[in-house]
């Protein structure tokens, strides 16, 4: 029965990965199986970096860029020089349900993706505005800033999408045509950061100020070749098992709490607000 449905052989299903909720690995795998129809499209043809927590979220996890020893032959990989690792890395590519289940079985709670696809690794198809608050900024502050960003993007006729980071921030994503390099997308986001910083005292646009208490940094630096963002619908390694959840813009209201979007609630959502995102390829030129 098992053989017909998946190539993955499950191991240590009883291992508790979220101790506060007493969530076992079987629940994590089930989550990824059930969310797969919404999630797989965003993983397709992208380099994956796994954050694995084999001993649960209360213990240290580890990043895994390389396909680990024992990676089954049916898992696709992508060999590329990594500037940060300074060597060739054999990255995992998740193009099917089995690979997603396999990663979940490795306790890869957090699944990160690049902003470009492997067929055009140097020209991204996603632009990321990572809105990252520094305490004591509240999530309401983050929401306000995201909404002003959207307003500005709307004015310029850009269609933008938003998701919770699963932690304290929000990610605003712009799907684009694969015609620009990372330097251009990075500069694009940086310009918006500078604009918002002029409008709001809370916003900082420069990396050197990103740790100033009570500020919100519009992080443009993620728009770099080989850098990753947490994938839409990935779990986070936080006690309450939050999920980086795509939202409708109209859901962003005062009082919204990022932890309300978690392993239990996300599966009950009726539809995927990011449906059609990958097809909405836009030109970056401002009119």
């Amino acid at each position: 029965m098992m053989d017909e449905l998946t190539k993955v052989s499950f191991t240590n299903l009883e291992k508790v990965l979220y101790p506060k909720l007493e969530l076992k690995k079987s629940r994590v795998i089930e989550y990824y199986i059930r969310i797969a129809p919404w999630m797989l499209g965003f993983l397709k043809n992208r380099v994956i970096v796994m954050n694995r927590y084999p001993d649960g979220v209360n213990k240290d996890g580890f990043y895994e860029k390389d396909a680990p020893v024992g990676t089954p032959s049916w898992v696709e990989t992508f060999n590329r020089y990594s500037a940060t690792a300074q060597r060739q890395v054999n990255y995992i590519v998740c193009n099917n349900l089995d690979t997603l289940i396999w990663m979940a079985n490795l306790a890869a709670l957090e699944i990160n993706i690049t902003l470009s696809t492997i067929d055009s690794y140097d020209t991204p198809d996603l632009v990321l505005f990572d809105i990252d608050p520094e305490p004591p900024c509240s999530f309401d502050d983050v929401i306000n800033i995201a909404l002003s960003l959207k307003e500005k993007l709307d004015e310029l006729n850009f269609r933008s999408f938003v998701k919770t980071s699963g932690k304290k921030g929000l990610h605003v994503v712009l799907p684009i045509m694969k015609s620009y390099n990372f330097k251009q997308t990075r500069e694009f986001v940086h310009q918006f950061g500078k604009f918002l910083a002029r409008e709001s005292d809370l916003v900082v646009s420069e990396f050197r100020n990103s740790r100033d208490p009570g500020t919100v940094f519009i992080d443009y630096l993620q728009n770099t070749r080989g850098k990753t963002m947490i994938a839409p619908y990935s779990l986070r390694a936080q006690p309450d098992a939050p999920v980086s959840t795509p939202l409708e813009w109209k859901e962003l209201k005062k009082g919204l709490r990022p932890e309300d979007f978690n392993i239990f609630t996300v599966l009950k959502r009726k539809n995927d607000p990011w449906e059609g995102l990958l097809e909405s390829k836009q030109a970056l030129e401002m009119e």
Binding site: E30, I33, P37, L97, I101
Partner: peptide, 12 residues
């Protein structure tokens, strides 16, 4: 646990 995963798999 495996049974539940199989149900989820069939649905997905």
């Amino acid at each position: 646990e495996v049974k539940e995963l199989m149900v989820a798999l069939q649905e997905t």
